[in-house]
């Protein structure tokens, strides 16, 4: 199918600024879903609040645009009640790591089969450029006029620490591998986190001396490197991208099915 078969043209034009990375991620999600040949009626997209989360309105699946930070909590309800559905949760970095941080680590801990796609632009786009938990030390934001003194999360380490069974990082420059990674993340049985570095030229770019979206994409090209590459050994500043974790552990909904089996084997008095 063509890309337009996956979007709700009725609601275009979209609200993203020219050069925003979020549209690229939406395109990659569509390609991944198409490659996996999943039926549209079997896909549920659950997002929070932010520029990133507006993706919900544009995609022609079952879409649930919720409240700031809680996408994964809603997604958990959807998935556990209908495990046969494929559930994706695209979120902003503020959404996922700040207000929604608790839900992120707990969804990871449970290993519930949801694909979290974190559209990380290191800034709060929707509210106009305030610093987020992934804004770099020393970066500028509308609430960090003297430079940010918060230390950023390393999302990959955070996800691994929380027990996510699929952890990957990619960028809006590396579209082909982004599609492959999202495909694998969706196919993965268990909780997957895909961090996509995504440019916000309007706020992060402007505040941090990036002349354009293209400059930011070039930055992703020159400042990232495949996991374990030689370049990384020579330059520790480089950000690694690729799949960090991919392991099979019992998935939450399947575990719950076992609970149902055990429970139904018991008599009314609770004895076997």
């Amino acid at each position: 199918m063509a890309v337009k078969d996956y979007i709700r043209e009725r609601f275009f034009p979209h609200l993203w600024c020219p050069g925003c990375g979020h549209g690229t991620i939406m395109g990659a999600m569509i390609r991944a879903i198409e490659n996996l040949e999943i039926k549209k009626r079997n896909i549920v997209i659950v997002s929070g609040i932010g520029c990133s989360s507006r993706i919900c309105g544009y995609l022609d699946f079952h879409t649930l645009h919720t409240i700031h930070g809680r996408a994964l909590a809603f997604a958990t309800g959807v998935k556990l009640s209908r495990p046969e559905l494929t559930v994706l949760a695209p979120m902003g970095d503020g959404d996922a790591f700040s207000i929604g941080g608790n839900h992120l680590i707990h969804a990871a801990r449970r290993n519930i089969d949801i694909t979290a796609i974190i559209m990380n632009n290191s800034i709060y786009g929707m509210t106009g450029g305030q610093y987020s938990p992934s804004t770099g030390y020393g970066d500028f934001a509308t609430t960090a006029p003297y430079g940010n003194i918060d230390r950023p999360f390393d999302v990959v380490e955070l996800a691994m620490g929380a027990g996510a069974t699929f952890v990957a990082r990619t960028t809006t420059y590396h579209v082909t591998s982004m599609i492959k990674i999202i495909e694998k993340a969706i196919k993965h049985k268990g909780f997957s986190i895909v961090e996509v570095l995504s440019q916000c030229p309007t706020y992060y770019g402007r505040k941090n001396k990036f002349a354009s979206a293209v400059e930011m994409l070039k930055y992703y090209k020159t400042h990232t490197t495949p996991i374990g590459s030689k370049d990384k050994k020579n330059n520790l500043e480089l950000i690694e991208r690729g799949i960090f974790v991919e392991e099979q552990l019992p998935e939450y909904c399947e575990e719950y099915d076992k609970v149902i089996q055990k429970a139904s084997q018991r008599g009314r008095d609770g004895k076997a």
Partner: peptide, 25 residues
């Protein structure tokens, strides 16, 4: 679970409220 239903203890009440809305849909 004895009737095939689902129970989940969430990480807090915010997420509990969200989860029941998601499931209701």
């Amino acid at each position: 679970p004895r009737k095939g239903g689902k129970f989940i203890q969430m990480e807090d009440e915010l997420s509990s409220m969200c989860a029941i809305i998601g499931a209701s849909l």
